[in-house]
Design a protein around this nucleic acid. Sequence first.
DNA 1: CTGAAAGCGCTTACAG
DNA 2: CTGAAAGCGCTTACAG
Lengths: 351, 351
Amino acid sequence: MEKRATIKDIANKAGVSSGTVHRALNGKPGVGEAVRTRILEVAKEFDYRPNYVASSLKRKALRVVAAFPGSNEQNRYYYSCVWQGYRAYMEEMHDYNLQVIELPYYGEVNGQGAELNAVLARYHNEIDGLITVGHLEDERGKQAIRHFSELGIPVMLVCDDIPESGRMGCVQANYDVTGRLVAELLSSQVPAGSSVLTCAGDVLITAHRCIVQGFENYLAENNIQLNTINVYGFLSEQDLAMRLREHLESNPDISAMYSVSARISVTMARVVKALGLNGRLRVIGSDLFDENVENMEAGILNNIIFKNPYKQAYTATKVLMDRLIKGIDPVRDVQYVESVLLFKSNLDMYL
Amino acid sequence: MEKRATIKDIANKAGVSSGTVHRALNGKPGVGEAVRTRILEVAKEFDYRPNYVASSLKRKALRVVAAFPGSNEQNRYYYSCVWQGYRAYMEEMHDYNLQVIELPYYGEVNGQGAELNAVLARYHNEIDGLITVGHLEDERGKQAIRHFSELGIPVMLVCDDIPESGRMGCVQANYDVTGRLVAELLSSQVPAGSSVLTCAGDVLITAHRCIVQGFENYLAENNIQLNTINVYGFLSEQDLAMRLREHLESNPDISAMYSVSARISVTMARVVKALGLNGRLRVIGSDLFDENVENMEAGILNNIIFKNPYKQAYTATKVLMDRLIKGIDPVRDVQYVESVLLFKSNLDMYL
DNA sequence: CTGAAAGCGCTTACAG
DNA sequence: CTGAAAGCGCTTACAG
């Protein structure tokens, strides 16, 4: 409960000015080696801890860039939650003298890289941090992220990781665990020997692939006698619906279905409804958004696996700001946010 | 991206000193009615927003009291998480010029009230906020909480609520939803017509009672054909174990068990193990602590229902500090933290 | 390399 | 009721 030591206390004890203490503690140039050592000694002796609230007041604003996909049809739910999570944390830090630059981007693959390069050019590299999404398939986006990292600007990624980009860290769902969780639930609900139909999305998208793998690994490792039927297909809804229909009509052993991605969940639910299979099949959708919620309430979906993009972005922003404001490096570069199994009973807690 | 207006800007525009602006904006005495009105007008016009980082620097420290049960055998896991959640948030707010008083208390019922009254006497009522637990059965604790509230000190409760104490708010698990969630899971796993054995705890403890009710309400509202056998008993482990044993041995219809509280989960698991029923019964424990984790890994427990005391305390502390630092009143007085169903697959995400 | 001074946006104590 | 001044713990720009 004693008063914390301040820079002034250290300056007095060490017989130097507070400006010199500041330079020494923050590793700034312009302090003699002997003086710096002495100051660090005194700081240690006093158990000095900087007051970041005070330091934020006078220093120049931290310029933080946030670049996520803007809202369009495909990603309107997922990325709007990302924006919300990011903004919620920034709002909490609002008084810490920040300047935020928000870059929603659109278009297929070029959006991210183009926006990031433009902002870099405009601000003459005077940017302190970046938070964005790791799009593994977007070469220009990757390059832009690498460019930031090479300039020494800390970059945090959400949703997907690009380790080789030099980013400081990534906060994402653990897709392997997500798949295992679905497998563990379903294997406790459906009869041994029956089949599970997986709406497996796009094998080239890491998240989709890892969920399917997690699911199958769980079955294999636990000797669960379930057959899996993986139906790939992501972009063409018509095509996917048709193939799901064929499987369901020709295979009476199918006891459950799940989907690895948000948009596919809608297609899956539509097929289940059209065939009147509600209640005869366990059906697990992916992600929390209007259509899925309606389908839960209508009894078409039994569960939703919720990857919590809000929390991912909130957490990633926190990691970034801890680094920028307090100089704290993340303990692990990859941090996982739990995916949650939603039931009808607890759905309201997450809306 | 424009510069935010400051108190100085308002003072200039209104033609008064910044001290007067401060008094007017914070409802302090010593400002004429006309001047105050004018200042509020200008503040609105400028869309003024106080900088709490700056204000924390010079004002006197906020004195916050935290009173939770100290660690002893019974509650070592649950309340240590409460302390951790509270401390984690306080740590984040560390630089906001706070003075914290931590009061762990012990003993059956008198601890909380005694500690709270002692601190009130010692600090001559110069306390700005209190966070503690609502012990419904502890009359002296209730009185003490009421005393704080009547002095105008904001009080936040965790774990259990005492609405009539005048507390500002409460953050707790939603026990009704928790019970429903267990019911929804089990009813998807066990055969219709079978029985569920409930380790129902103490009917006088709100949390226990509400979980059991939530469970039964779910079954009734959804026409689930499951029989429920509620076995009460909380303090005497021997007695509870014996009665559980009797039920399990005499009733072959029992297909699942769950427990409403942490300590009972251990007894329940011991009985299941002793009778060699692992894998033949669905078993759901309560709360996350060493024994339960071991029992999950050993396959004795299938699931854990996790009430997240860390998050409860973290959230409650945040609500309290938002009020004290920023003057923000909570939107709802009761806020629920989600209970999470843990599986073997996602257990690691919560450790 | 080092110091003295000013100032971030607010709060407080004092003087009138 | 109101103002002028000092100061919270830092950072910055300038002078030497």
